[in-house]
Structure formats: C-alpha cells, structure tokens
C-alpha cells in the first residue's frame, strides 16, 4: 500500500464521516431552515473529500478531470438549489424555529404563520 492509497483512504473516510454527520444533522435539527445548514455540510466538504479521494484513485487520467468537473458543477449548483428552496419556503410563509419557541415548550414544526 503506497502513500497515495493511504491518502485516498483518509480523504474517503473523512468524506464518509461528514456525509453521515450531515445526515444525522438533517434528522436532528428542529425545523426546515436549520436542516438546510446541515445539508450544506454534505454539499460542500463531503463532496470535496470524496472527489479528492477518487481523483487519487484514478490518477492522472481524463477521469480525474471529469471528477473535477463534477465537483465544480456541484459547487455552483448546490447553493443555488438551497437558495431556491429557502426562498420558496419564505414565499410559502414557513415560520422559522427560534430559541424562544423552544423555551416556551412550543414545537412549531411545519407551522405556517
């Protein structure tokens, strides 16, 4: 096992951890707006680690360039999709969860103001 393989394994492992953590976040957080932040983790760094690890696996080939293209594309589209979702949720008058609601014992999950 040479050094590139080890580095690739480390990157893939980190990516896997970030992905699972992001998914846990999407399950744990109280409302839609906070969940968006959790999904942001998996969109950025998790993707980056996976693509990096795979690029080391493929080496200096055309496949690595394609992987880089995929990464660039996702880096541009993910915030756009998140923003479209957030704007739609605002337009749909979805009320954001706040600390004050939680203290008052209210769960306003999915409440529309």
């Amino acid at each position: 096992m040479d050094i590139l393989q080890i580095l690739s394994a480390v990157l893939l492992g980190l990516g896997a951890i970030l992905g699972v953590v992001g998914a846990i976040g999407i399950l744990r957080f109280p409302d839609f707006y906070t969940r968006m932040h959790a999904s942001g983790i998996t969109d950025t760094l998790c993707t980056g680690f996976f693509i990096g690890g795979l690029m080391l696996q493929f080496g200096m080939t055309l496949a690595s360039v394609k992987l880089l293209l995929i990464f660039m594309f996702m880096l541009f589209t993910c915030p756009t999709a998140t923003h479209a979702l957030a704007k739609a949720a605002r337009h749909g008058k979805l009320k954001p969860w706040t600390r004050a609601d939680a203290d008052a014992g209210l769960s306003n999950e999915g409440r529309v103001s």
């Binding site: 999407i26 839609f32 969940r35 968006m36 995929i70 739609a88």
Partner: peptide, 24 residues
C-alpha cells in the same frame, strides 16, 4: 419531513449522494 420543503431538501441531498455513489 412534516413540510414539503423538508422532503425536497432530503431528496436533494439524496440526489447529490447518488452522484457521489455513481462516482465511487
């Protein structure tokens, strides 16, 4: 996901993970 937005957010995440899965 109680609201439609949660569902779409989850589906979006599912989609980006699918891209990674195909790459792997």
């Amino acid at each position: 996901g109680p609201t439609i937005y949660d569902r779409i957010l989850a589906v979006n995440m599912f989609g980006t993970k699918t891209v990674l899965l195909i790459a792997v």
